Computed example of a mutant assay.
Amino acid sequence: MTYDQILDAIGTILRDKLDNHHMDRFAPQARLNEDLYLDSVLILEIMLALELDHGVALPEEVISRQDLDTVDDLARLFANASEPNGTPVKPAKDLVLARVEREAVERIGVHGEDFVDIKVHCFVSNVCHAVKQRQLDHRPFFFGVWDAGFAVDRSWRLAYHAPEINHDFFRDWFERLYGAKVRQWYQPDAAKVENLATMLELLERKKESEYLMVMLDLFHLPERENKFNQNPFPHYLMLEHTDDPAVWMVLDPDFRWEGRIEKQKVINAIMQPTVAGGFIFDAADIRKPSAVDLRDYFLACFHEDDNLLTRATREIVRAHLESRDGVKLPELSMALR
Rank of each mutant, 00 (worst) to 15 (best):
residue 82 S to G: 03
residue 256 R to Y: 13
residue 148 A to N: 11
residue 335 A to Y: 12
residue 105 V to P: 00
residue 29 Q to R: 13
residue 90 K to A: 11
residue 322 E to R: 14
residue 72 D to T: 00
residue 128 C to M: 13
residue 48 L to G: 12
residue 213 M to V: 06
residue 81 A to Q: 11
residue 40 S to T: 09
residue 205 R to M: 00
residue 238 M to N: 10
residue 334 M to Y: 05
residue 249 M to G: 06
residue 177 L to G: 04
residue 198 T to G: 02
residue 178 Y to F: 09
residue 11 G to A: 05
residue 319 A to L: 05
residue 17 K to I: 09
residue 62 V to H: 08
residue 248 W to H: 09
residue 140 P to R: 10
residue 291 A to Y: 01
residue 253 P to V: 08
residue 154 R to M: 10
residue 41 V to S: 08
residue 258 E to H: 13
residue 273 P to A: 09
residue 118 I to K: 09
residue 209 S to Q: 06
residue 43 I to W: 01
residue 62 V to A: 14
residue 207 K to E: 12
residue 137 D to K: 06
residue 331 E to N: 09
residue 222 P to Q: 07
residue 245 P to W: 10
residue 210 E to F: 01
residue 57 A to C: 12
residue 83 E to N: 03
residue 44 L to G: 14
residue 89 V to H: 13
residue 22 H to E: 08
residue 144 G to W: 04
residue 201 E to R: 13
residue 163 P to A: 07
residue 155 S to D: 14
residue 37 Y to Q: 07
residue 310 T to F: 10
residue 146 W to A: 15
residue 189 D to V: 12
residue 121 H to N: 14
residue 103 E to D: 08
residue 229 N to Y: 10
residue 188 P to H: 14
residue 169 F to D: 10
residue 209 S to E: 06
residue 320 H to A: 05
residue 268 N to E: 14
residue 243 D to S: 15
residue 300 A to Y: 06
residue 146 W to S: 15
residue 311 R to F: 03
residue 259 G to T: 08
residue 297 Y to M: 06
residue 337 R to Y: 00
residue 140 P to Y: 10
residue 90 K to Y: 05
residue 311 R to Q: 15
residue 203 L to C: 00
residue 276 A to R: 03
residue 157 R to A: 11
residue 225 E to K: 07
residue 41 V to Y: 08
residue 171 R to H: 01
residue 129 H to K: 15
residue 54 H to K: 13
residue 228 F to Y: 11
residue 66 Q to G: 06
residue 315 E to S: 10
residue 269 A to N: 04
residue 8 D to C: 00
residue 306 D to F: 14
residue 227 K to E: 11
residue 285 D to Q: 01
residue 129 H to M: 15
residue 158 L to Q: 03
residue 129 H to T: 07
residue 293 D to E: 14
residue 164 E to D: 12
residue 102 R to A: 09
residue 71 V to C: 08
residue 199 M to N: 05
residue 5 Q to I: 11
residue 192 K to S: 14
residue 242 T to S: 12
residue 13 I to T: 09
residue 144 G to P: 05
residue 326 G to C: 03
residue 52 L to H: 13
residue 289 P to M: 09
residue 60 E to C: 02
residue 146 W to F: 03
residue 130 A to R: 11
residue 51 E to L: 02
residue 161 H to K: 08
residue 277 G to V: 03
residue 66 Q to F: 03
residue 183 R to A: 12
residue 110 V to I: 07
residue 235 H to K: 03
residue 331 E to A: 15
residue 303 H to R: 12
residue 295 R to T: 11
residue 53 D to A: 06
residue 81 A to I: 05
residue 254 D to V: 02
residue 39 D to M: 02
residue 112 G to T: 02
residue 128 C to H: 07
residue 226 N to E: 12
residue 283 A to H: 02
residue 100 V to D: 01
residue 92 A to E: 07
residue 94 D to Y: 08
residue 13 I to G: 04
residue 42 L to R: 13
residue 253 P to D: 11
residue 50 L to H: 02
residue 251 L to N: 09
residue 243 D to L: 10
residue 208 E to C: 00
